[in-house]
């Protein structure tokens, strides 16, 4: 399937500290520029709130979500950057019939457009709703954040991380988790005590720190188990079931056909005229 790195501590990760995000959307612009994505024709307030464009799409791999909330009677904003989570054990990669998604050893989950047959199972499987489809085309492909694989292979940081003035740190997953835990410990009053992405969907390559409880911010509650394990617990039984059903039915048929076979052998030994006799026998059964 994919070249799964055994130790996810060494894969590259984002630490996105939403308490430091100013909502400048520099990352959104940097991503569009680096990936040469078309601008979208949008209208304000077409989505949930101030965010624009309203949703990630084939043209928008990352987007800053705006969330209004009230604090001490004051209206406040919380922002968070939405993008592919680059899961440790990605659901998209496990369900793809042709293995078009691969978790790279460096960390990003990348997509091979030359393989994709366009079944859109990855879109059903991804717990974060990340892969988007080129609905405008007659022969569409899937689009999603690449984790800037081409940049990090050359030792650079992702375009959005470079553009971000405040909130994004980029490094190995082990380091980023340590850093996040340090921040939670040093300033407990500033943070909601959780790292989103540490265990979600079996662990992801994007880690979030927030001030508010996660669900209030609009983070999807997802299972802590890796998603591929849910299907694998059924799929791993496939060869066994195939052999059991095949073998069981063969055995059963051998027994159910036994009487008839014995009779025919008997007939053969006595070298009677077997053809006629068997025909007469079965004719009685048939209507």
């Amino acid at each position: 399937m994919s070249s799964l790195p055994v130790n996810f501590d060494t894969t590259k990760s984002f630490l996105i500290d939403t308490t430091k995000c100013t909502g400048c959307r520099g990352c959104q612009v940097a991503c569009k520029q680096w990936n040469q994505l078309k601008a979208e024709d949008t209208t304000f307030f077409s989505g949930e709130g101030y965010q624009n464009p309203p949703l990630m799409s084939e043209y928008t791999f990352t987007r800053v979500k705006f969330k209004d909330y009230q604090k001490d009677g004051q209206n406040e904003f919380a922002f968070y950057k939405e993008m592919c989570m680059h899961c440790n054990e990605p659901a998209c990669a496990s369900v793809c019939p042709v293995g078009a998604f691969v978790k790279t050893a460096e960390g990003p989950v990348i997509y091979d457009a030359g393989r994709c047959i366009g079944c859109r199972f990855c879109m059903i499987a991804c717990p974060f709703g990340v892969p988007k489809y080129e609905w405008s085309k007659a022969f569409p492909l899937v689009r999603k954040c690449t984790g800037c694989y081409s940049r990090i292979k050359e030792g650079m940081q992702p375009a959005c991380a470079t553009a971000c003035p405040t909130a994004i740190s980029y490094g190995t997953r082990g380091d980023m988790i340590k850093e996040a835990e340090k921040r939670l410990k040093n300033r407990p009053e500033r943070y909601h005590n959780a790292i989103y992405g540490k265990d979600e969907a079996g662990g992801t390559g994007i880690l979030y720190l927030t001030q508010q409880p996660l669900d209030e911010l609009g983070f999807k509650p997802v299972t802590k188990r890796s998603l591929p394990s849910y299907t694998w617990q059924a799929l791993r039984l496939v060869p066994g079931i195939f052999l059991t059903v095949g073998g069981g039915l063969s055995l059963l048929s051998w027994f159910t056909h036994r009487k008839e076979r014995l009779r025919r052998e008997e007939l053969f030994k006595n070298s009677k005229l077997p053809a006629e006799t068997t025909n007469v026998e079965t004719k009685e059964d048939s209507p």
Partner: peptide, 21 residues
């Protein structure tokens, strides 16, 4: 399928972890 002309890919690029495969 978005790319029906590539349906044969399933026979070439196996992914045994995929129920769709």
């Amino acid at each position: 399928l978005g790319q029906p002309q590539r349906a044969w890919h399933t026979m070439v690029y196996w992914n045994v972890h995929s129920p769709m495969f």
